[in-house]
Protein backbone atom coordinates (compact mmCIF):
# COMPACT_ATOMS: atom_id res chain seq x y z
CA UNK A 1 0.00 0.00 0.00
CA UNK A 2 1.22 3.49 -0.75
CA UNK A 3 2.40 5.67 2.08
CA UNK A 4 0.49 8.88 2.44
CA UNK A 5 -0.36 11.49 5.02
CA UNK A 6 -3.45 13.58 4.67
CA UNK A 7 -4.92 16.40 6.73
CA UNK A 8 -8.55 17.10 5.96
CA UNK A 9 -9.85 20.43 7.29
CA UNK A 10 -7.95 19.93 10.52
CA UNK A 11 -8.95 22.35 13.24
CA UNK A 12 -7.86 22.42 16.82
CA UNK A 13 -9.44 24.52 19.50
CA UNK A 14 -7.60 24.79 22.78
CA UNK A 15 -10.31 24.91 25.33
CA UNK A 16 -9.70 24.94 29.02
CA UNK A 17 -11.44 21.68 29.63
CA UNK A 18 -12.01 22.11 33.37
CA UNK A 19 -15.73 21.87 34.15
CA UNK A 20 -17.61 25.16 34.45
CA UNK A 21 -18.91 24.59 37.97
CA UNK A 22 -15.33 24.07 39.05
CA UNK A 23 -14.12 27.30 37.44
CA UNK A 24 -17.03 29.08 39.13
CA UNK A 25 -16.11 27.71 42.53
CA UNK A 26 -12.40 28.32 42.12
CA UNK A 27 -12.10 31.58 40.17
CA UNK A 28 -15.48 33.18 40.83
CA UNK A 29 -18.61 33.73 38.85
CA UNK A 30 -17.08 36.31 36.51
CA UNK A 31 -14.42 33.91 35.31
CA UNK A 32 -17.09 31.33 34.73
CA UNK A 33 -19.16 33.71 32.61
CA UNK A 34 -16.13 34.72 30.56
CA UNK A 35 -15.35 31.10 30.00
CA UNK A 36 -18.82 30.48 28.68
CA UNK A 37 -18.60 33.41 26.28
CA UNK A 38 -15.21 32.64 24.80
CA UNK A 39 -15.15 29.48 22.77
CA UNK A 40 -11.45 28.86 23.41
CA UNK A 41 -8.40 29.60 21.28
CA UNK A 42 -8.34 28.20 17.78
CA UNK A 43 -4.79 26.99 17.26
CA UNK A 44 -5.42 25.45 13.85
CA UNK A 45 -8.16 26.31 11.40
CA UNK A 46 -9.13 24.15 8.42
CA UNK A 47 -5.64 22.94 7.58
CA UNK A 48 -5.68 20.62 4.58
CA UNK A 49 -2.96 18.97 2.54
CA UNK A 50 -2.08 15.59 1.18
CA UNK A 51 1.44 14.18 0.99
CA UNK A 52 2.40 11.14 -1.05
CA UNK A 53 5.50 8.97 -0.83
CA UNK A 54 8.51 11.08 -1.78
CA UNK A 55 7.05 14.35 -0.52
CA UNK A 56 9.11 16.51 1.85
CA UNK A 57 7.02 19.25 3.36
CA UNK A 58 8.56 22.30 5.01
CA UNK A 59 6.35 23.89 7.67
CA UNK A 60 7.17 27.55 8.03
CA UNK A 61 5.61 30.47 9.86
CA UNK A 62 6.30 32.80 12.72
CA UNK A 63 6.56 31.68 16.32
CA UNK A 64 3.10 30.79 17.50
CA UNK A 65 1.77 30.23 13.99
CA UNK A 66 0.91 26.63 14.87
CA UNK A 67 3.83 24.63 13.43
CA UNK A 68 4.49 22.54 16.50
CA UNK A 69 0.79 22.12 17.19
CA UNK A 70 0.28 20.86 13.65
CA UNK A 71 3.15 18.39 14.04
CA UNK A 72 1.63 17.10 17.28
CA UNK A 73 -1.73 16.69 15.59
CA UNK A 74 -0.10 14.82 12.71
CA UNK A 75 1.70 12.56 15.18
CA UNK A 76 -1.47 11.92 17.21
CA UNK A 77 -0.61 13.57 20.53
CA UNK A 78 -3.46 16.02 19.97
CA UNK A 79 -6.61 14.83 18.32
CA UNK A 80 -8.12 17.50 16.09
CA UNK A 81 -11.38 19.02 17.31
CA UNK A 82 -12.51 19.25 13.69
CA UNK A 83 -11.56 17.40 10.52
CA UNK A 84 -9.25 14.41 10.53
CA UNK A 85 -5.73 13.19 9.91
CA UNK A 86 -5.27 10.05 7.84
CA UNK A 87 -1.92 8.33 8.25
CA UNK A 88 -1.03 5.47 5.99
CA UNK A 89 2.37 4.29 7.15
CA UNK A 90 4.35 4.08 10.38
CA UNK A 91 4.89 7.52 11.86
CA UNK A 92 8.01 8.44 13.80
CA UNK A 93 8.63 11.82 15.32
CA UNK A 94 11.81 13.64 16.23
CA UNK A 95 10.79 16.15 18.79
CA UNK A 96 11.63 16.20 22.46
CA UNK A 97 14.31 13.57 21.96
CA UNK A 98 15.33 13.71 25.63
CA UNK A 99 11.98 12.43 26.85
CA UNK A 100 12.03 9.45 29.16
CA UNK A 101 15.74 9.16 29.84
CA UNK A 102 16.40 8.01 33.37
CA UNK A 103 19.39 9.30 35.31
CA UNK A 104 19.96 6.16 37.31
CA UNK A 105 19.77 3.69 34.46
CA UNK A 106 22.78 2.95 32.28
CA UNK A 107 23.02 4.27 28.75
CA UNK A 108 22.37 0.76 27.47
CA UNK A 109 19.24 0.33 29.58
CA UNK A 110 18.03 3.77 28.48
CA UNK A 111 18.29 2.71 24.85
CA UNK A 112 16.02 -0.25 25.60
CA UNK A 113 13.53 1.89 27.54
CA UNK A 114 13.43 4.58 24.92
CA UNK A 115 12.94 1.98 22.20
CA UNK A 116 10.01 0.47 24.09
CA UNK A 117 8.46 3.91 24.53
CA UNK A 118 8.85 4.44 20.79
CA UNK A 119 6.87 1.27 20.28
CA UNK A 120 9.72 -0.97 19.13
CA UNK A 121 9.63 -4.66 19.91
CA UNK A 122 12.40 -6.07 22.15
CA UNK A 123 13.72 -7.99 19.14
CA UNK A 124 13.97 -4.82 17.09
CA UNK A 125 15.80 -3.06 19.91
CA UNK A 126 18.19 -5.97 20.27
CA UNK A 127 18.93 -5.82 16.55
CA UNK A 128 19.68 -2.10 16.65
CA UNK A 129 21.43 -1.58 19.93
CA UNK A 130 25.01 -2.05 18.74
CA UNK A 131 24.50 0.38 15.90
CA UNK A 132 23.03 2.94 18.31
CA UNK A 133 25.94 2.56 20.73
CA UNK A 134 28.48 2.84 17.93
CA UNK A 135 26.88 5.96 16.53
CA UNK A 136 26.70 7.65 19.94
CA UNK A 137 30.52 7.27 20.33
CA UNK A 138 30.02 6.63 24.03
CA UNK A 139 32.27 3.58 24.17
CA UNK A 140 32.53 2.08 27.65
CA UNK A 141 30.43 4.87 29.09
CA UNK A 142 27.38 3.09 27.70
CA UNK A 143 27.34 0.91 30.85
CA UNK A 144 27.57 3.88 33.19
CA UNK A 145 24.48 5.61 34.59
CA UNK A 146 23.00 8.22 32.28
CA UNK A 147 23.24 10.76 35.11
CA UNK A 148 27.05 10.68 34.95
CA UNK A 149 27.13 11.81 31.30
CA UNK A 150 28.12 15.28 30.24
CA UNK A 151 25.47 17.27 28.39
CA UNK A 152 27.14 16.53 25.09
CA UNK A 153 27.26 12.80 25.76
CA UNK A 154 23.63 12.75 26.82
CA UNK A 155 22.63 14.64 23.70
CA UNK A 156 24.60 12.23 21.52
CA UNK A 157 22.89 9.22 23.03
CA UNK A 158 19.44 10.78 22.73
CA UNK A 159 20.11 11.69 19.13
CA UNK A 160 21.41 8.24 18.27
CA UNK A 161 18.38 6.47 19.71
CA UNK A 162 15.91 8.88 18.22
CA UNK A 163 17.34 8.69 14.72
CA UNK A 164 17.91 4.96 14.50
CA UNK A 165 14.65 4.29 12.80
CA UNK A 166 13.44 3.58 9.36
CA UNK A 167 10.32 5.68 9.36
CA UNK A 168 7.77 5.70 6.62
CA UNK A 169 6.52 9.08 7.78
CA UNK A 170 8.97 11.27 9.67
CA UNK A 171 7.94 14.37 11.62
CA UNK A 172 10.64 16.77 12.80
CA UNK A 173 10.59 19.98 14.76
CA UNK A 174 13.64 22.08 13.86
CA UNK A 175 17.05 20.64 13.27
CA UNK A 176 18.47 18.83 16.23
CA UNK A 177 21.81 20.06 17.50
CA UNK A 178 23.75 17.44 19.42
CA UNK A 179 27.30 17.31 20.68
CA UNK A 180 30.46 18.98 19.43
CA UNK A 181 31.26 20.20 15.93
CA UNK A 182 32.42 16.86 14.56
CA UNK A 183 29.36 15.07 15.92
CA UNK A 184 27.17 17.84 14.52
CA UNK A 185 28.48 17.09 11.07
CA UNK A 186 27.81 13.39 11.50
CA UNK A 187 24.35 14.18 12.89
CA UNK A 188 23.44 16.42 9.96
CA UNK A 189 24.54 13.76 7.53
CA UNK A 190 22.39 11.22 9.31
CA UNK A 191 19.32 13.46 9.35
CA UNK A 192 19.76 14.22 5.67
CA UNK A 193 19.97 10.52 5.06
CA UNK A 194 16.83 9.91 7.12
CA UNK A 195 14.93 12.48 5.14
CA UNK A 196 16.02 10.67 2.01
CA UNK A 197 15.02 7.19 3.12
CA UNK A 198 11.72 8.11 4.77
CA UNK A 199 8.67 7.96 2.55
CA UNK A 200 7.33 11.30 3.73
CA UNK A 201 8.97 14.04 5.76
CA UNK A 202 7.35 16.97 7.52
CA UNK A 203 9.92 19.42 8.85
CA UNK A 204 9.07 22.51 10.88
CA UNK A 205 11.86 25.05 10.79
CA UNK A 206 12.85 28.69 10.64
CA UNK A 207 15.92 27.83 8.60
CA UNK A 208 15.28 28.72 4.96
CA UNK A 209 18.43 27.08 3.62
CA UNK A 210 17.58 23.84 5.34
CA UNK A 211 14.05 23.83 4.00
CA UNK A 212 15.31 24.48 0.51
CA UNK A 213 17.80 21.66 0.77
CA UNK A 214 15.40 19.06 2.16
CA UNK A 215 11.89 19.92 1.04
CA UNK A 216 9.98 19.93 -2.20
CA UNK A 217 6.86 21.63 -0.81
CA UNK A 218 6.26 24.42 1.63
CA UNK A 219 3.26 25.10 3.80
CA UNK A 220 3.15 28.55 5.32
CA UNK A 221 1.15 28.75 8.51
CA UNK A 222 -0.15 32.02 9.81
CA UNK A 223 -2.30 32.24 12.93
CA UNK A 224 -3.18 28.59 12.59
CA UNK A 225 -4.33 28.82 9.00
CA UNK A 226 -2.71 27.79 5.76
CA UNK A 227 -1.47 31.08 4.31
CA UNK A 228 0.11 29.35 1.36
CA UNK A 229 0.91 25.85 0.18
CA UNK A 230 3.22 25.65 -2.78
CA UNK A 231 6.12 23.87 -4.49
CA UNK A 232 9.52 24.86 -3.15
CA UNK A 233 10.51 26.53 -6.43
CA UNK A 234 7.73 29.08 -6.08
CA UNK A 235 8.48 29.90 -2.46
CA UNK A 236 9.57 33.46 -1.79
CA UNK A 237 10.06 33.78 1.98
CA UNK A 238 9.69 37.57 1.74
CA UNK A 239 6.08 37.09 0.73
CA UNK A 240 5.32 35.68 4.14
CA UNK A 241 2.78 37.82 5.89
CA UNK A 242 4.30 39.82 8.72
CA UNK A 243 3.50 38.97 12.33
CA UNK A 244 0.14 40.16 13.49
CA UNK A 245 -1.04 41.91 10.32
CA UNK A 246 -2.62 40.56 7.20
CA UNK A 247 -2.66 37.09 8.70
CA UNK A 248 -5.12 35.52 6.32
CA UNK A 249 -3.97 36.93 3.00
CA UNK A 250 -3.20 34.39 0.31
CA UNK A 251 -5.13 31.24 1.07
CA UNK A 252 -3.63 28.20 -0.56
Amino acid sequence: MMTYLEAKDVSLIYRVAVPRFYVGLRDGQRARNERMRSGGVEALHNVSFRLEAGDRLGLVGHNGAGKTTLLKVLYGIYEPTGGEVVRNGRVDALFNINLGFRRNATGRRNIVLRGLINGWSPARIEARIDEIIAFSELGDFIDMPFGTYSQGMAARLAFSVATTLDPEILLMDEWIGAGDASFQKKASARIENLTKTAGIVVLASHNEKLIRRVCNKVLILSHGEVADYLPIAEWRPDDQPATGVGGRSAAG
Binding site: R102, N104, A105, R109, V112, L113, L116, I117, G119, S121, P122
Partner: peptide
Protein backbone atom coordinates in the same frame (compact mmCIF):
# COMPACT_ATOMS: atom_id res chain seq x y z
CA UNK B 1 -0.68 -4.58 24.29
CA UNK B 2 2.09 -2.17 25.39
CA UNK B 3 2.89 -4.37 28.38
CA UNK B 4 6.62 -4.39 27.58
CA UNK B 5 6.61 -0.65 28.22
CA UNK B 6 4.80 -0.59 31.55
CA UNK B 7 6.52 -3.64 32.96
CA UNK B 8 9.96 -2.17 32.16
CA UNK B 9 9.06 1.30 33.47
CA UNK B 10 7.55 -0.05 36.69
CA UNK B 11 10.70 -2.06 37.39
CA UNK B 12 12.82 1.04 36.86
CA UNK B 13 10.53 3.08 39.11
CA UNK B 14 10.92 0.71 42.03
CA UNK B 15 14.68 0.46 41.44
CA UNK B 16 15.02 4.24 41.34
CA UNK B 17 13.17 4.71 44.62
CA UNK B 18 15.60 2.52 46.50
CA UNK B 19 18.83 3.06 44.61
Amino acid sequence: SCRDVWIALANEDIGDQHR
